[in-house]
Amino acid sequence: MSAIFQIHNLAKLNWSTDANALNKYLFSQISAEIAEPTRIALIGASGQGKSTLLRIMALLDTPDEGDLLVNGKSFQHIPARQWRMTVTYVAQQAVMLPGSIEDNLRMVSKLHGQPYDVSLATELLEQLGLDYLDLGKVAEDCSGGEKQRISLIRSLLLRPEILLLDEITASLDINSTQKVEALLLNWHKQQGTTFIWVTHDLEQARRISNRTWMMDKGGLQEYSSDAFFNEPVANLAKRFVGSTEGSLH
């Protein structure tokens, strides 16, 4: 059995054409392997390229070097559509598609000609505290936090093997954040879905993950979350802040 997901020496060139740019790469030599269904927290200072890494993993951007493999097959040999149905990106800025909330929720079944799972959609809405919403409402008129949760449900209905979650609780209150965390932990347990969750909230990272990926100085380090978060807090904070300073060229 091959690993669920593998990253081999992935690199993304820096846009900056400035010859004096300190780094040729935004990040480089990134390798990681997900052998079994895992909950991963992806942390790192702003601008390290967390979103870019997730976008590349969902093939919304191309890697400049290296390879990505799902179940042992390289992205170069799998049609992008099929890949994205397996590895699905939930964006940092939730974008609502034209039409009602229901149109948004039905989009996946419409795109792929599959039946729409009404009961699952209803259940997910309820679990995320959105059952008060009128599904006929224009999705664009929803609040930022509502949009973020709708966009999460929209992607869950695709039932991908790997979910790439980009700061999906950034505009949620504590209560809704807890609901999202509980839902995803449960979803992981029930469906065996792997997720990679970008967050700036270290407490959240500790709660939701069993592995931690940290992006720092153009590279990526993997830790067991237990070990990572059980270090003395001062030490941890220093490392985290240190990485912020390191990125401010």
């Binding site: 969902a58 919304l60 992008a80 559509r81 099929q82 994205r84 149905m85 699905t88 990106y89 939930v90 964006a91 800025q93 974008v95 598609l97 034209p98 989009m107 996946v108 795109l111 792929h112 966009s151 929209r154 992607s155 695709l158």
Partner: peptide, 20 residues
């Protein structure tokens, strides 16, 4: 752009993503 990429993330074809 955001809308097109959202559709792509959900597994849309180029045609589906560009329809509107």
């Amino acid at each position: 752009k955001g809308e097109i990429e959202t559709l792509l993330s959900l597994g849309a074809t180029a045609q589906q993503a560009m329809q509107k």
